[in-house]
């Protein structure tokens, strides 16, 4: 009985003593890694000047860990080489292994984020197809792969019209329907070629754009009563944008 009592005392004594021990501080172990901090990109030479033979699109690379006092190179590779719609290095984009691209894949000293220009080349084959470049971050001597969900990003491009990824954000300007003829009409009449950024004062500016496009379409169809503006499949162009709840 006495033995049992002593064991209890010993047990509780150990518990109390254990609670007095000092924990080691949890400190950040610097382990640099990178991931993509930008969305997928759709680009079309369709929206650019016809004389333009190459164009830069940007991907944002974010570095985890403490900023460094010196520049640090990182590595991006193409991960979809074997896909049927894969962009071809040197034909559709500046090779990632080229000296020029290697210079761009550098995290500057003191920074933890950098925008990397990816140079797309306007090859004639882009008149007939849409290609995709899937970029993936790769481990090198300076960085590991960071967030696995953000370790790759897609750049889809062509010389054909491509539906902007944020088309629904322009609803009150252009309506719901989308097509390459409609897209060209919008560009010709508004001068807008970059659809990535939504302007401030968007709603009332959009209503202005919509009113203008409605009038320009009216004028076009009035001038071409036998052939109103339509997509290649015969779908008539419209800019209808009945009010919808933005949510």
């Amino acid at each position: 009985m006495m033995m049992k009592k002593n064991l209890y005392l010993l047990f509780w004594g150990l518990v109390i003593l254990a609670s007095c021990s000092q924990d080691d501080l949890l400190t950040y172990k610097n382990d640099p890694a990178i991931y993509f901090a930008s969305k997928d990109v759709n680009y079309s030479f369709f929206y650019a000047e016809s004389t333009l033979l190459k164009a830069d699109v940007f991907v944002t690379v974010h570095a985890m860990g403490n900023p460094s006092s010196s520049d640090r190179s990182f590595s991006l590779i193409q991960s979809n080489v074997s896909d049927a719609d894969a962009a071809v290095s040197g034909i559709h984009f500046l090779p990632l292994t080229s000296q020029e691209m290697q210079k761009r894949m550098v995290m500057p000293a003191g920074q933890s984020e950098v925008e990397v220009p990816i140079t797309l080349l306007k090859d004639p084959s882009l008149d007939l197809k849409i290609v995709k470049l899937t970029l993936k971050v790769a481990t090198n001597e300076n960085f590991k792969v960071g967030v696995s969900e953000c370790d790759s990003t897609n750049i889809t491009f062509s010389s054909q019209a491509i539906k902007p990824t944020n088309w629904k954000d322009w609803y009150y300007a252009f309506g719901d329907s989308w097509g390459s003829v409609k897209m060209k009409f919008i560009i010709d009449n508004t001068g807008i070629t970059n659809f990535d950024k939504i302007p401030s004062d968007a709603l009332y500016y959009f209503l202005f754009l919509n009113t203008k496009l409605q009038q320009k379409l009216f004028e076009y169809n009035n001038a071409h009563p036998e052939a109103p503006l339509a997509e290649a499949d015969g779908t008539l162009i419209n800019f209808d944008n009945p009010y919808i709840n933005p949510s």
């Binding site: 202005f208 009113t211 009038q215 009216f218 009035n222």
Partner: peptide, 17 residues
């Protein structure tokens, strides 16, 4: 231009002939 909304600028001409 709508009263109380936007930035006080007139819209494009109302579409039609």
């Amino acid at each position: 231009q709508y009263g109380g909304q936007g930035i006080g600028k007139f819209n494009y001409q109302l579409a039609g002939g």
